[in-house]
């Protein structure tokens, strides 16, 4: 039953993927709501910074992996070298199924299956791309992640050597080269995002049982150590 319903839906979604741009952009306001799925990792708007993912101002028309200062996955860098330019069509395909377009992307996102959601999201993103001078004035979205963490904990300097040992436990599931295939990439995150996420699991504010269990027995220094190790992992 599940399969019978599911497969045609996917096929339908794929067949209209290329049509998103041809049909025009959707509603940017609705797209702002869709963007809540993205904002755990991406900022957009004035003053937006690179976080777990690069900021998305001016994404349209840019070559993939061309934004300086952000450490892209090898796959994304290769796609950029191969000439992937972010257009409505390519962005539409990417957000529909990230790994189908860039196989070992670090973007841990399953994809937007709904064509209307994609059209709305693209309209929202375009507002921050079309004319940089007109980027709407607003606080950047996605500032500081989901939960408060004691600044003293965030200020801890992690011991990367200890982090390397502890990381072996993470690497049974998370891949060292950063590819995400059903389990998110955890390499090259900004330290703060890593620490905040782990403490959110530890306090059971984030919902995943394996991660709650793993984070639950790491102390503050150990979390800092892991953040320090994974941050610079090539």
């Amino acid at each position: 039953m599940l399969r019978a319903v599911f497969l045609p839906a996917v096929l339908a979604a794929i067949s209209v993927a290329g049509a998103v741009w041809a049909e025009g952009f959707g509603d940017a306001k609705a797209g702002a709501r869709v963007f809540t799925k993205c904002k755990g990792c991406h900022e957009i708007g004035q003053g937006a910074r690179d976080r777990i993912g690069p900021h998305l101002n001016g994404i349209f028309g840019r070559r993939a992996a061309a934004h300086e200062g952000y450490a892209y996955s090898k796959s994304m860098a290769r796609a950029g070298n191969d000439g992937l330019i972010w257009t409505a069509e390519t962005l539409g395909a990417y957000v529909e199924n990230p790994r189908a377009l860039v196989s070992k992307t670090r973007m841990s996102f399953r994809g937007l299956k709904d064509a209307q959601d994609r059209a709305d999201l693209l309209a929202f993103l375009r507002d921050y791309s079309d004319n940089p001078a007109d980027v709407p004035e607003a606080e950047p979205t996605a500032r500081a992640t989901d939960h408060d963490v004691d600044p003293a904990i965030l200020a801890l300097k992690g011991d990367a050597e200890y982090g390397e040992y502890l990381s072996s436990e993470c690497l049974t599931c998370h891949q060292q080269d950063g590819s995400a295939e059903g389990i998110p990439s955890i390499t090259r995150w900004p330290t703060e995002d890593f620490v905040v996420a782990m403490h959110a699991y530890k306090r059971k504010l984030r919902p995943h049982p394996v991660m709650q269990m793993m984070a639950g027995r790491l102390n503050d220094e150990e979390i800092a150590a892991l953040a320090a190790y994974f941050k610079d992992l090539e």
């Binding site: 072996s168 049974t172 599931c173 389990i183």
Partner: peptide
């Protein structure tokens, strides 16, 4: 299920 596939890729790489 998708997570289990990710785990398989992870552990075999490890």
């Amino acid at each position: 299920y998708e997570e289990s596939e990710g785990w398989y890729a992870g552990i075999t790489a490890d």
